[in-house]
Design a protein around this nucleic acid. Sequence first.
DNA 1: CTCGGCCCTGAGAACGTGCTGAGGACGCCG
DNA 2: CGGCGTCCTCAGCACGTTCTCAGGGCCGAG
Lengths: 214, 214
Amino acid sequence: MVEDEARLAAALQRGLQAEGFVVDVARTGPAGLDAARHGGYDAMILDVMLPGLSGYELVRTLRAEQHWLPVLMLSAKDGEYDQADGLDCGADDYLTKPFSYVVLLARLRALLRRGAPERPAVLAVGDLRLDPARRRVTRADAEVTLTAREFALLSYLMRRPGQVISKIELLDHVWNASVETAPNIVEVYVGYLRRKLGRDRLETVRGAGYRLAT
Amino acid sequence: MVEDEARLAAALQRGLQAEGFVVDVARTGPAGLDAARHGGYDAMILDVMLPGLSGYELVRTLRAEQHWLPVLMLSAKDGEYDQADGLDCGADDYLTKPFSYVVLLARLRALLRRGAPERPAVLAVGDLRLDPARRRVTRADAEVTLTAREFALLSYLMRRPGQVISKIELLDHVWNASVETAPNIVEVYVGYLRRKLGRDRLETVRGAGYRLAT
DNA sequence: CTCGGCCCTGAGAACGTGCTGAGGACGCCG
DNA sequence: CGGCGTCCTCAGCACGTTCTCAGGGCCGAG
């Protein structure tokens, strides 16, 4: 739940927990966005008026990043266009304050029942797209075939584009090898990926690791 | 749309048609139920107060019959429990009359965007059709006879066409075997299916699993 | 410029994965 | 009992994948 009014947040949290839900609360827009990205939640209750980032922007960002978490929006504005805007930003339902707790609960259940549409959780960086479920990678809409190891390495890098990731970390997560494994294997596979994806997608940061160009 | 007030129905129909929707109207509960069952619609707008069969009962019946058409319920009752009841019967959204047309439209769009969690009576992928009820499979309109195991495997794959499904998962769901069972049996059955359905329907994704070509 | 270390790459060995045909176990039915 | 169909096991083979290794190139520090 992303809600900056502490009392409302606490009341809802208590109520939902009593229903058996596991509830986390974020108080600001950016914090909520972050939680939605990485928290593995089944749904999000989202206030529109938030410090840092409005609920509208939050949903829009989330959808642009291909996250399809069901979102129930709360707002004090009951203008019909506010409601329409919220839904068109990508929210799945919209309630105006003050709202009935029973209604909130029923709508939340309806949302969960409907569930997230099968995750097009597609990672996209530049013209690179990686679909974990379909295990497909395309570069400028052309399919690229990767081996299992190459695929694992690329998806690890694509989850943190622009960041430098050390060979040790890659060995650890992609190979789950111990620290003493020779890091040369990473170099070899980066080489393979460069050959298949283009020379300049993967930058070497000498002495530090590799970075996926954004 | 299932609505017995002729003027409202006509107005909505006109409006939605102007937005590019194809709209049919049913005036009674039973007629609406029938249309929902056989009409192949993408969503249903449903009044609660209907002659013959209430909206609540209609949705409940539909859901009990495993139809997962998105339903937007309309009602003159704005008691919170009415709303909660409607949603708990299986509706996906609920609007109280009088409602704003703009809001209706936005909610309808949100509902369509989320889409029906497809559970079609007949699974179809390419020229392959599989009818779970009749336990029949056809390929380009020619019947294919499958053994029980082959059928189970194929239907599991057809529920998630294009996605890569691991042998472990197949073992788990089609064989409900433990993780330590030798995955060779999956390979064998994929071989059988390929022989019966054609070589290239089932792609092997080395190190990952199998994928039904879309 | 020179040197040391870091990184890249091609060759090929080692390894694993997946495919297939043969055939045994089992249950069903005439 | 014998024939049949289904389910499954097994072992051998083929080939793609993974990894090792060594030589050489590149970069930055001094």
